[in-house]
Design a protein around this nucleic acid. Sequence first.
DNA 1: TGTACATCAGTGAACGCGCGTTCACTGATGTAC
DNA 2: TGTACATCAGTGAACGCGCGTTCACTGATGTAC
Lengths: 200, 200
Amino acid sequence: MTDMPRVSKEQTDLNRAAIEDVSARLFREKGLNGVSVADLMSAAGLTHGGFYGHFSSKDELVAVACANAFAQAVTRWAKRVGEQPDDRAAQKALIDSYLSSKNLVDTGNACPAMTLVGDVARESSDKPVRAAFVAGVSELTEILASIATSDDAAERRKTALTQLSTMVGAMVLARATSDDPFSAEIMNAVRESLHDSIAA
Amino acid sequence: MTDMPRVSKEQTDLNRAAIEDVSARLFREKGLNGVSVADLMSAAGLTHGGFYGHFSSKDELVAVACANAFAQAVTRWAKRVGEQPDDRAAQKALIDSYLSSKNLVDTGNACPAMTLVGDVARESSDKPVRAAFVAGVSELTEILASIATSDDAAERRKTALTQLSTMVGAMVLARATSDDPFSAEIMNAVRESLHDSIAA
DNA sequence: TGTACATCAGTGAACGCGCGTTCACTGATGTAC
DNA sequence: TGTACATCAGTGAACGCGCGTTCACTGATGTAC
């Protein structure tokens, strides 16, 4: 149980994976500035000094964690879409799972578009996390566009961008008001509205 | 020009007002944790030590600044609504001014629902800023509900909550991607979609 | 296959820095006479 | 109205703390023979 430096190559890879895993979860939960390098390393079962053997800076890890979180979301969305009988059902399934109080409780696994958007907004443009965020949001938009109900590609993309904005906006507002009845009200209202717009 | 302690009562009030003014602007611009007490006092032309003569803690000021920012937004919305010939025009006017790149450049004066939502989301429930945020968002919702197009009050509120979510979501995403073409694309797409939904 | 040794992943003390908050002090303001 | 003095808004040094990052060190791993 005592610590012994110099670890096997396999263990090194496992350690790096553990750092990435806890980061993707904790950054979403507590924010990019709400988790220190020491917090992350400790959550991964390591000490803070070893961090810079895996990443050149916290900023670099932040970008990797953001990309991983989006990859997780994309996989989940694609799977859910594949399980539905048609496009309308797929839209409804994504909307229902997005506008869920589960995402307020388990923010560590929620969509990074809603959990990281505020932090990314204030990072300077040259930080690597911004590129990862754009790439991730673009992927989610493409999934929504692929199941949007229109013959026109531009119209489908417009629908996708609007649906994503609405879902993200509803959830960030619901999170910021999570101790108030307003939180549930906004999730319910927006879920109904989005369902209505699909049926139309 | 040299500093001389003990200032007149009028000057004390002006100083407090200056602290509140720069706070409402800087917190929206740089985030609640992106501005220190020393930054605020310096921007107000004072030194950091005097802060606690005006406020009992940074958290207290944060709540005051949040409330002031919402009050500013509510006044602006009400004025804009009053200038329009009818409810549909009022909705369009609010949507157009919200989904504007001006709000990405001049974030210090933008709606606190889009600029503070990420920070407020991570503040613990007992922090005073959360109550101020709920109150502010509720006021904006009521303005939108008052001009929504429906005979049914519940339906108007549903529309208001959805429009607010969509506008907030679009702007936080546009801000987080502001160095990328995606940013303008999402603002344009969402503006068009919201206009379409009003015309319908 | 067995032995000797160089490598290098991880450790933990230390770095400079900025944070929110406290406090002894200052001296013009505001008041009591 | 004029003078003497107590008040208290603002100053700036100092507090303890946590941050991202660096670095000398350790000793099992992985390699060369």
